[in-house]
Design a protein around this nucleic acid. Sequence first.
DNA 1: GTGAAAGCGCTAACAG
DNA 2: CTGTTAGCGCTTTCAC
Lengths: 335, 335
Amino acid sequence: MSTIKDVARAARVSIATVSRVVNNDAKVSDKTRASVLKVMADIGYTPNANARALVTQKSSTIGVVIPDLTDPFFASLANGVDQVARQHHMQLLLSTGQISAESELQAINVLIERRCDVMVVHSKKIKAEVLLKLAEKIPGLVLIDRYIAAIAHRCVWLDNEEGGRIAARHLMSLSHQHIAYISSKYEIDDPLTRLKGFTEQLPQQHLTSSPDLIAYEEPNLRGGEIAAQKLLAKGLPFTAIFVYNDAMAIGAISTLEDNGFKVPSDISIIGFDDVLFSRYSRPKLTTLRYPIEQMAKKAALLALQLSKGEVSDEEHKYIPNLVKRESTAIAATTK
Amino acid sequence: MSTIKDVARAARVSIATVSRVVNNDAKVSDKTRASVLKVMADIGYTPNANARALVTQKSSTIGVVIPDLTDPFFASLANGVDQVARQHHMQLLLSTGQISAESELQAINVLIERRCDVMVVHSKKIKAEVLLKLAEKIPGLVLIDRYIAAIAHRCVWLDNEEGGRIAARHLMSLSHQHIAYISSKYEIDDPLTRLKGFTEQLPQQHLTSSPDLIAYEEPNLRGGEIAAQKLLAKGLPFTAIFVYNDAMAIGAISTLEDNGFKVPSDISIIGFDDVLFSRYSRPKLTTLRYPIEQMAKKAALLALQLSKGEVSDEEHKYIPNLVKRESTAIAATTK
DNA sequence: GTGAAAGCGCTAACAG
DNA sequence: CTGTTAGCGCTTTCAC
């Protein structure tokens, strides 16, 4: 691969001049510029970004830490960041880390090695104090989908508890009295917080929650199927299910229908996230919209600002909103 | 951010020694190693990957060029590459380029600037000769989802024509006589090739294809909806649709059902790709399996080998296979 | 085992 | 406008 020196030699100028035309920076005579440009094209010169990053101390890449790309939720997240990156002529460096503190830390570390100025991190398992230390070290680090009070202005997060409340109110407004919950088996805050908001709303209609009506599985399509089976197997009556996310909701519907239950006439289902797909499921899924792409853009923009030393102490809290579609309806007569 | 010099100074050794322990490379006395390690931990040293890449001339990142992350098909592709990257302790550098020659080229160029040793490129619009030149320049470049004879052993692709044939045979075996085709509006080979295979199979049952029964739209859920509407609007009789991909197929089903048509009893639908979601649509989608993740892994592995100078002249052609689910059935009596 | 020194490709003063 | 030069942080001979 040719270097700046090769170009300089061939164009009979100094490397400084070549550098100038590459960065179309300082004043270079049109003539010189043209001839350098020509040489570059001829020998197929491509500047070395690593060398450039080394001397300028900036990598012009935005790092993203997510668990996994196949989950459409995280794909949307990455996509939001990517859009901002493109807008700013930066690249996306993806670092996937399973849901474990060690793996998440490892993923962040990779980004640091690359001297990512800007990073959007989805971390569920790293302890707050560790994250705090990291945030101190890396000005352009922003947390998404997590809230830590001490760095509230560097968190872009969703009010999960409110989401739970909204779901509860919606289901209760449809006269449901026995509501099950399908939850994620991962030990992270979100499913708990959603359940908390949900449960706390129940007494308003003199309902109570029952731990027996909760099933924990992997937060994906398959997990939803299994969770629904488990719920069914218990033989307890319920007319609605609040499901941790859309993927599980759709999996659950699949199981339910395969077992002869009609959604929503027999059982109502409400999901969470409003991934693209939810609008196309049959029945179309009622869910809580989690504007993750928008949030990811916000996070990327924020990280960009922070990396430049700009600070603001705004909070970036988002509230999910109810998207009523077809998977919820008035409760069937209680069995 | 601290450097190797800081560590050397604090540990009272030379930078060479620090470098050695970082790469836990040569022989360093246990004592020295321990003390260096301690200093590194104390001051929070993280090696600079850019500097390292500069001197070693290798970036330890795998580059991926795809149009877009929100499409689950491409997310799976990226995920496959990511898995290989993780296995080899490398990072994923993502370069998204819309479907245009210029934008794809730009995306590849970014990877070259970063001196990506290894890259998996999904390019539909760059001309073969340009790609050939690029491939010559970059030994670790592999094309996915595209076939160029001159570099056949560096292409990992699917036989789309055969896919079309399989779809046609399946539908004909169910006695369908009037079959529509929902296609992508992008001017790329795939939809054409699939249609070609499909059409060429028709005469076997004395059927002919009709350009009137083809609708072109964006290859996503929304596009499928619109395409189905267009087809319906024509008022021509058909009992089955061969759809360019699963996303469009699901969109089409949505439109069809909203218009009172039952799938598959009124109209059969067969998709293409077998994205995760297809198994959970209602009705469950009959489709052609495109093992993209597996292919992406293969491509990444191949690129890795090539970058090391290992060559083999195997071909990497994949054949889609029919996944029968619920969206196709015996043709309704022709109207 | 360990250190000194050269240099990867580039940018950014500083001269002229 | 253009060239010289000093590093950026690191790896890698080559001595000792």
